[in-house]
Design a protein around this nucleic acid. Sequence first.
DNA 1: GTTTTATTAATACAACTGTATTATAAAATT
DNA 2: AATTTTATAATACAGTTGTATTAATAAAAC
Lengths: 194, 194
Amino acid sequence: MPKLVDHEKKKKHIAEATWRVIVEQGMERVTVRNIAKEAGISLGSLRHYFSTQEELLSYSMNLVKDKVTARIMKIATQQLPLKEKALKMLLELVPTDKESMAEAEVWFTFIAYTRHKEQFDANQDGVFLGIQQLMQYLQQYNLLKTDIDLELETERLYAVIDGLALHAMLNPKRVNRDLAEKILVHHLEQICQV
Amino acid sequence: MPKLVDHEKKKKHIAEATWRVIVEQGMERVTVRNIAKEAGISLGSLRHYFSTQEELLSYSMNLVKDKVTARIMKIATQQLPLKEKALKMLLELVPTDKESMAEAEVWFTFIAYTRHKEQFDANQDGVFLGIQQLMQYLQQYNLLKTDIDLELETERLYAVIDGLALHAMLNPKRVNRDLAEKILVHHLEQICQV
DNA sequence: GTTTTATTAATACAACTGTATTATAAAATT
DNA sequence: AATTTTATAATACAGTTGTATTAATAAAAC
């Protein structure tokens, strides 16, 4: 019987090579040949795991989403004061180290790329739904100020998060972890009860 | 002597065709042939105005920047109460009609594209500098609350603006002009004196 | 009307693209 | 050790890319 290779492992290896190409060279250098080279395999070998480019891109993007989701969920299941937990979860969405910055870069690049491809179900609203849920949760536990407009504050927080994420990615020197944390702590203080 | 064509006008016409290709088809369809077709001219004709693709892209991007800057400056020179003026200027940065949404799309696309090309001087910090100046201005005229951290609030406002801009672009139905205005009014109320 | 030059169109070229096909190498079962 | 199944590699192909070259066309000044 055949030489047996861990399929899922190899696919992840190729997806990671795809990320590296995106981060280091940009989306227009994302070619099957470039990715195969970055992954250290031949073109035919890559095609053995992904028969079309669309399939490869879709897989690579979903893997980023899964990684981020896993990190958030890990925090969500921790035993922590709710406000502290909320802060940690939100901070996880602002890229402040090499790994999460690469993820953010891949994420934004894909968003821009898939906007004009209806074959991808962009699924760009995961973060919004998460923040919406978080805000509802905070309100249910009476942690929010009573006079706030929940829908408005959800959108505002969502804007702060994605804006910070974008700026941390584009200008990591100016928008570092310290600043992001200070801003989020301050913002949460403004919408939460004392 | 020769046939005389308004060079700058024609270049703008081509740049606008470039924008349309970006907005409707995405960056990976931005080819000299596609753009020439969209502009209704021949490939050779396009090359007569832009001898390289890089030149064309650089020009098209700068034109977007100029358009947005002009709109903001027009508001800046209006005779208006300062807080009202600030709101109008900030709202101008959140795309809520077809034209400004196209501009935002072009802008974000270019940012993603030029990140990996050092031959473009990305010049992405224009908005940040503008908001920084606006905040300093508000403080000088004693319109800001006295106990705020100026640097922090500048970064937060900048994040809200770019986050809103991104969301308005990606989900114009949910993040429309009404919502953007409500959020900005509310945000300014929180950092301004009563 | 001729001349001069800007502008346009057409074609060519090498490099690169995604995908397809074919052949070789390797490993597990018999 | 022989066989069978899978993994990898090599090569091919049609289409597209940016750029270059060439010839044709347009318009304005004399």
